[in-house]
Amino acid sequence: MKARVFVSLKSTVLDPQGQTVRAALNGLGYPGISDVRQGKFFDIAIAGGVAREQARKDVETIAHEVLANPVIEEYRVEILD
């Protein structure tokens, strides 16, 4: 089983990297790109024998306490087979 955790800056937090990418895309001839927000994701492998619900619970906790800083970031957890 695998889990994927997406972490991105909250919409209220300035993302200068995303803004720079957006400006570059506009310059490359994509005037229709109005905004870019940059984030990251973590692919997490879970050992066999761990129940799906337990895995989700653990990964949610890990996302909240370690992978994301809730002051500035939001996260989303996906459990993949």
């Binding site: 800056l9 937090v13 300035l14 200068p16 990297q17 720079t20 800083n69 002051v71 500035i72």
Partner: peptide, 17 residues
């Protein structure tokens, strides 16, 4: 200290990168 929650807020990338 902010990551540890001993002080509030966060420190993020400089505006000019």
């Amino acid at each position: 200290l902010v990551e540890a929650g001993l002080l509030p807020g966060a420190l993020i990338r400089n505006r000019g990168l």
